[in-house]
Simulated assay, not measured.
Amino acid sequence: MAVRVIVVDDQVMVRAGIAAIVDAEDDLTVVGEAADGAAALALAAATRPDVVLMDIRMPGMDGLTATARLTATDDPPRVLVLTTFHEDPYVYEALRAGAAGFVLKDALPADLLAAVRVVAEGEAMLSPAVTRRLIDRFAHDTPRAAPEPARLDALTPRERDVLLGVARGLSNAEIGAHLAITVGTVKAHVNAVLGKLGVRDRVQATIVAYDLGLVRPHT
C-alpha cells in the first residue's frame, strides 16, 4: 500500500514541485495540498495521511501550531518539517512539538523521498546528535514545561543509562560498548524507554531527556 502524503506550503510553486516529486513514486501518493496550518488540519482529518510535509512559516496558522495539533491527535501522521536552513530555531521548536525531523527545501529529490520513506516506517529523519546540536544552539531561549520526575522514575537505572546515551547522540553500538552490553540488549532497552516515555523515536526521546533535566545544553 502506498504511503499517503500531504504537502503544506504557502508558496504555490514550491508546494506543487514537492507534490510532483513525491507523487511520481510508485510507493508514495499525494492525497492533498494545503497553503496554511488550518487547511492542513482539515485536510489531514479528511484524508488520514501517513506523512505530512509541513512548512513552518506560513500566514494564518503556522507550521509549529499545526504540527503540535496534528501530533496530539489519535493515531497521528508523521510530520516532516520543510525549512530553508538547518539551524532554523523553528526546527527545534517543531521537534519539541512532535515533528519526526526536517528536510531542507533545496534538498535533492532523492533525499526528500528517502526522508518520507524513513518517517513513514516510524523512524526519525534526524539523528539525536543533530537534535543535540539544535538543543545546544536554541534551548536557552526556549521556555520549558515543569519537570515531570515521575516519567524518569518509570525507567530502570539501566534504561536511564541508555536514554542518556541516546540523548548524547550515541549509536546503539556505541551505547553497548560504553555499558558493556550487546547491541540487541541496547535495542530492547531503547524500545522500553520509548514506550515508557510515550514517544515514538530517538529524537523525541532526546527532547524529553532535556526537558526532564537528565541532559543539559553543553554537557
Rank of each mutant, 00 (worst) to 15 (best):
M1E: 13
A2V: 13
V7D: 03
D9H: 05
D10C: 10
Q11D: 09
M13S: 03
R15D: 01
R15E: 02
R15T: 01
L28R: 08
G32Y: 09
A35M: 06
A42D: 12
D50V: 11
M61W: 10
M61P: 05
D62R: 03
D62S: 02
G63E: 00
T65Y: 00
A66L: 09
H86P: 14
D88S: 12
V91G: 03
L95V: 07
L95W: 04
A97R: 06
A97H: 06
G98Q: 10
A107T: 12
A107N: 10
L108T: 00
P109G: 00
P109H: 07
A110Y: 06
A115Y: 05
R117Q: 11
E121M: 14
G122I: 12
G122P: 05
L126V: 11
V130R: 07
R132C: 03
R137Y: 06
H140G: 02
R151T: 14
L155S: 08
T156C: 11
D161V: 09
V162Y: 11
G165F: 07
L170K: 13
N172R: 14
N172Y: 14
H178E: 13
T185Q: 07
V186H: 05
V186A: 06
K187T: 14
V190I: 15
N191V: 11
L197C: 07
R200N: 03
D201I: 09
V203Y: 02
V203C: 11
V203F: 05
A205L: 11
I207Q: 04
D211G: 05
L212F: 10
L212V: 12
G213R: 08
V215W: 02
P217A: 00
T219H: 11
